[in-house]
């Protein structure tokens, strides 16, 4: 029994990181209609920046995290303004390809500025073990779970109550009608990219604290795709849940079946779910008219 609990809890902890990145993916998809293939790379870049800051300011964990988040705001704005906005109105295919090219640049750029060796992100906190009953969790794992919960609650309230959140939903529903109502789609896109970069950055920092900072970090972006598909591409909250589900499914597959199945468990889950719900668990069915 304890074994099962341990497997589920550590699955939730991994899933929280997938979930955060998946929320970023869904946020961009919802407001711009694009799949951002550079989401994992954004997380990787912020993790590297945090690692550099940690080297510059040893003993100031909160400054490091704050600095990295400022960097992620800048990153999000820069990508939107310099790369994505000029592509506004171009075919979706071409724009998605641009995010793929961006991923290539970020990956190679990180290796160029830093190096291919894995590094430990040591900011003095996050690595200690907290006992929840008989189950041990690292501080950063707990923080990732709490952050995911906060993000879920925050986005729920944001979409429901804030003006910008409502505007975002309007742009997602019909960007032309929203623009006619006086909503600046460009500004909404900028907000979406920035918010998405910030949560990707947070996920990157958690990941780096738990594992390492290395060019491999971008893989986590690939793992987040099943999460956001499971939850529904246009459902920000659903994607968060999707991440947790994938994390738990992986761990149960690894714990009770074979370890080699673990990495494809998430994919098997999404195939099964999509057969029943073709728009994900929480996604909205497109109403198509001819």
């Amino acid at each position: 029994m304890q074994y099962l609990v341990d497997q589920i809890v550590s699955g939730i902890a991994v899933g929280a990181i997938y979930g955060l990145i998946a929320m970023g993916l869904a946020l961009i998809y919802k407001s711009t209609g694009l799949a951002n293939f550079a989401q994992g790379e954004m997380a990787m870049l912020i993790a590297y920046i945090a690692w550099t800051l940690a080297g510059l300011m040893p003993g100031h964990p909160w400054l490091v995290v704050g600095g990295a988040l400022v960097a992620s705001v800048v990153l999000g704005l820069a990508i939107e303004r310099l790369i994505m906005r000029p592509m506004l109105g171009e075919p979706v295919f071409a724009t998605v390809m641009v995010t793929i090219a961006l991923a290539v640049i970020l990956r190679a750029g990180a290796m160029l500025i830093w190096d291919p060796y894995p590094h430990a992100l040591d900011i003095g906190i996050g690595r200690g073990v907290v006992m929840l009953g008989a189950t041990g969790l690292r501080e950063a794992q707990l923080a990732a779970i709490l952050t995911l919960m906060a993000a879920l609650a925050g986005f729920w309230a944001f979409f429901r109550y804030s003006r910008i959140g409502k505007a975002m939903r309007a742009v997602a529903a019909d960007s032309r009608a929203a623009q006619l109502m006086g909503i600046s789609a460009a500004r909404i896109h900028a907000i979406a990219w920035t918010a998405s970069a910030v949560i990707a950055g947070l996920a990157g920092i958690f990941f780096a604290l738990l594992y390492d900072v290395s060019p491999n970090l971008y893989h986590v972006g690939l793992k987040s795709f099943p999460a956001t598909i499971l939850g529904g591409l246009d459902s920000v909250l659903g994607s968060g849940f999707g991440g947790v589900l994938i994390g738990v499914a992986e761990n149960l597959a690894g714990g009770y079946l074979a370890s080699s199945i673990k990495e494809i468990a998430g994919f098997i889950v999404i195939i099964a779910v999509l057969m029943i719900r073709p728009f994900g668990l929480f996604g909205e069915r497109d109403i198509e008219r001819v």
Binding site: M97, V98, A101, L102, V104, I105, A108, L112
Partner: peptide
Amino acid sequence: SVLYGVVII
């Protein structure tokens, strides 16, 4: 590699 990405963009 960076150049490759930039050219495509």
